[in-house]
Design a protein around this nucleic acid. Structure first.
Lengths: 203, 203
DNA sequence: GCGTATACGATACATTCGTATCACAACATC
DNA sequence: GATGTTGTGATACGAATGTATCGTATACGC
C-alpha cells in the first residue's frame, strides 16, 4: 500500500483546512471544494478521506472538542499546585474568552456548530451539553475547595457559582464576537464579577 | 392597480413564513422556495415582494429587532409605576430567556442571525450591538434608581451589573437552546444571581 | 513478476439554489 | 375603451454542490 502519508495525519490536515474556512467565511461556506482548495488538494482527496460531508463535519467537531479540553487541561497543569483559587478561575476565564485571534476563531466555529445543532438533529448535540457540564463540575470543585479553605465566602453556593461563571463567560464571549464588547470591556466585566464573588460578606 | 392585498401586509406574511422555517430547520434551510412553500404562495411572489434574497433576510432581521423591543416595552409598561426594582429586572429576564415555544423560536433565529453576521460583512452587524447596548443602558438606569432608593446595596456598580445581567441571561439562553440547561435550572440560576445582587452587604 | 489493495486524478451527474424571462390578468386613469 | 401600471403564474438558466464513476499509478504480499 502506498502509505506515503499517514492516514490520520492527512485527515487532520483536512480538518484544519475546514476550520480555517469556517472561521474566515462561516460554517455555511464549508464545502467539499472549499476545504480541498484551502488544503491545496483535489476534491477527490477530500472525498477519499471522508466518505461524506457529514463525516467531515463531525470529525472537525470532535477535533474542536478535544482541542478545547486539552487546552484547558494544559492551562490548569501549568499552574503551581497551591495557586490561589481566584487565579485558577481567572485562568479558566482567560481560556474561555475569545481574546486573541486563534481563540476567536475557535469560539466562532464552536458557536456556529452549536447553532447548527439546535435545528439539525443528525448533528450530535451531545458535545454541547457534555463539554460545558464537565467544565461546570470542575469549576464547582475548585470553588468548593476554595470555600473549605476559607478563601470563598460561606454565603456562596459553589455549584450555582460555577453555573453563573460559565453562563457569564459564554455570554461575554459571543457578545465579543458580534462586536458588542471589546476585549477590554469583557475583561473588566470578568474582573468585576470575580471581585463580587470573592470579597468577604458579613450580614 | 389591483391592490387586492396590502403590500406591507403581504411582506409581513412572507417574513413570518421565513421565521417559521428558520426556527424549525435553521437559517440555512431558508430559501426562496422554502419560504414560498411555507407561506403557501408561488416562488414568483416571494421574488416580487423581495427583489433579492438578501433583502428578504434583512427584512426578517429588522422585524425581529422591532418585535423584540416592542415586547420588552410592553412588559415594562404592564408593570405598576412603583414596582419593586427586582421585579422589574425579573420581568426583563423572563422576557430575555427562551422559556416558552415562541420565545425559543425567536432566540434561536436571532442567534442564527448573529452567528451569520460574525462572518458575513454584508449582513449588518449593527443590530447585534445596538440592541443589547440599549437594553444595557436601560437596565443600568433601573439599577441606578434602585440604588438611589436604597433598594440595591451601595457596593454594586449599576453599569457593571447591567452588563453582568445581560451576559448572564444571554449565556443561559443559548445554553438552554442547546439543551445544556432546562427551563428550571436556568430560572434557578437567575434567581440565585438576583439573590446575590440585591441582598444587603455590610463589610 | 504478478495480482491486488491503496491512493489519487479527471470528470460526470443529478439536484438545488438564486435569479431572469415571458406571458397574462386585474384594475386605474384618461 | 384604449393604455399603462401592478400583481401573479409558469418556466428557464447558469452556477454551485454532494456524490458517483472511471481510470491509473504506486507499493506490498507472494
Amino acid at each position: 500500500m502506498p502509505r506515503r502519508v499517514d492516514h490520520a495525519e492527512r485527515r487532520g490536515h483536512l480538518v484544519v483546512a475546514l476550520l480555517r474556512v469556517a472561521a474566515r467565511h462561516g460554517l455555511h461556506a464549508v464545502t467539499m471544494r472549499s476545504v480541498a482548495a484551502e488544503a491545496g488538494v483535489s476534491l477527490r482527496l477530500v472525498q477519499y478521506y471522508f466518505d461524506t460531508k457529514a463525516e467531515l463535519l463531525l470529525a472537525a467537531l470532535r477535533q474542536l472538542e478535544q482541542q478545547s479540553s486539552q487546552r484547558w487541561a494544559a492551562r490548569v497543569a501549568a499552574l503551581p499546585q497551591d495557586t490561589d483559587p481566584r487565579a485558577v478561575v481567572e485562568a479558566f476565564l482567560a481560556e474561555a474568552l475569545p481574546t486573541d485571534g486563534a481563540s476567536r476563531d475557535f469560539h466562532l466555529v464552536w458557536t456556529s456548530y452549536a447553532v447548527l445543532a439546535m435545528t439539525d438533529p443528525d448533528l450530535a448535540a451531545q458535545p454541547f451539553v457534555d463539554g460545558p457540564r464537565r467544565l461546570e463540575t470542575h469549576l464547582a470543585d475548585i470553588l468548593r475547595r476554595a470555600q473549605d479553605q476559607g478563601r470563598l465566602p460561606a454565603g456562596r453556593e459553589p455549584a450555582a457559582e460555577a453555573t453563573r461563571l460559565l453562563a457569564l463567560t459564554h455570554g461575554l464571549g459571543t457578545s465579543l464576537l458580534v462586536g458588542h464588547h471589546s476585549v477590554d470591556t469583557a475583561r473588566d466585566a470578568v474582573t468585576y464579577h470575580l471581585d463580587q464573588l470573592f470579597t468577604e460578606v458579613e450580614r
